[in-house]
Design a protein around this nucleic acid. Structure first.
Lengths: 209, 209
DNA sequence: GCCTGTGAAGCTATTCACAGCT
DNA sequence: AGCTGTGAATAGCTTCACAGGC
């Protein structure tokens, strides 16, 4: 059951679920791979390939059964219990991310925020308690936190990442504008906003064929 | 000169520049591909391959000359003039992004923000004037805006994207949690924050080999 | 000796295309 | 007839490995 699943596939599975959930609520019962592909902007072949990783996909004659698919996706994507998430760095970007993620009532909840600056800790922001960074390892251990959002300046990113991994975190969403290195058993998803905007600007200029 | 450059390469070139700039200021004159690779978390071969796209890379015997590289990168990545950027959607996420990007004093400046909601327009946020969405096409045309940041709800994303492209935008940084479709001459970079966090949570659970 | 630039090999991800099912 | 599941082909990216330069 642990066929290494590529991260692109996971991303699409999450997307499929997001597309299917409202359809199920509207009473949609079945759909074809090409319909889901249209909604997700992929190809039918890719949808089928992706869904192969969802064991229970089992699709008989008239396409996929929406509710069964959703069940399969949930079994694959969700933890049995809600997962607590830590956010490190309560600066400009950190606060913005906190307001964004705190707003979501999800299986993933930001339950603790941290900053080195005492002026930023010791308060509650968007319903999330803020602590001093030095309290992080203890709290992460106590709450069993495995997922962290990193929103510190580039210079501190690697140091904090090391602390996080040392405390038991195995997944980091890295917004710091610097690549970080983690041991093999941990996973990093980098999101570099400034870099992304530069990329868009580059292609915006160029794509006027 | 228009060898289609893959977007992964562009991303790394932007990163290289970010790494090299401070080195140049500290007086660093030359470096080897493997040194840059270490700093950028890549391989030496990849750095060399990437730098091949920067025409002026020309690197003789003792590695790459930092200042020449930076010049080459700037020539490739930067527009001759600063590029104005529009931001659409002044909700939670839009404001957060505005505060983040407005803080940057760059070749890329967010010069106009838009929202359908009159309560959110007609004011200045983080030094950026906010307008009604209906004024967008005229303003985009007047300022010659080619790059837009899309931060509207999923349901509106496609409609607004169509408007943007119609107004002359050719690059969109899409934060809406929905894929958007644009004509071939335009470029979209999707950043789906909620999806990214789900992905991290998935691998965080799994990566405890 | 140790570097760069680069053809060639190797990998990974996507798409094709068709057998099997209803 | 039109779908799924999937081996086989393809395309895109990364790494290897070596010729050529100092």
């Amino acid at each position: 059951m642990s066929e290494r699943i590529p991260d692109k596939v996971v991303a699409r599975l999450v997307l499929y679920r997001r597309i299917l959930a409202p359809l199920a609520e509207q009473g949609f019962e079945r759909l074809y791979s090409h319909q889901l592909a249209d909604l997700a902007q992929g190809t039918a072949a890719q949808v089928r390939r992706d869904l192969m990783t969802v064991a229970t996909a089992g699709s008989p004659a008239r396409g996929y059964e929406v509710r069964a698919l959703l069940r399969g996706l949930a079994a694959m994507l969700d933890a049995p219990d809600p997962q607590p998430v830590a956010l490190i760095g309560i600066g400009n970007l950190g606060r913005a991310l906190l307001s964004f993620f705190a707003a979501r009532q999800d299986r993933l909840r930001v339950t603790a925020a941290f900053d080195v600056d005492p002026a930023k800790a010791k308060r509650t922001l968007h319903g999330c308690p803020c602590h001093l960074l030095e309290e992080m390892p203890a709290l992460v251990a106590k709450q069993g936190i495995r997922v962290a959002i990193l929103a510190v300046p580039a210079a501190e990113a690697q140091g904090v990442a090391d602390l996080l991994v040392g405390a038991g975190v195995t997944g980091i969403l890295n917004f710091a504008p610097a690549p970080i290195r983690v041991p093999d058993h941990a996973y990093v998803e980098p999101i570099d906003l400034a870099l992304a905007l530069e990329k868009v600007a580059f292609f915006a200029r160029r794509e006027r064929a």
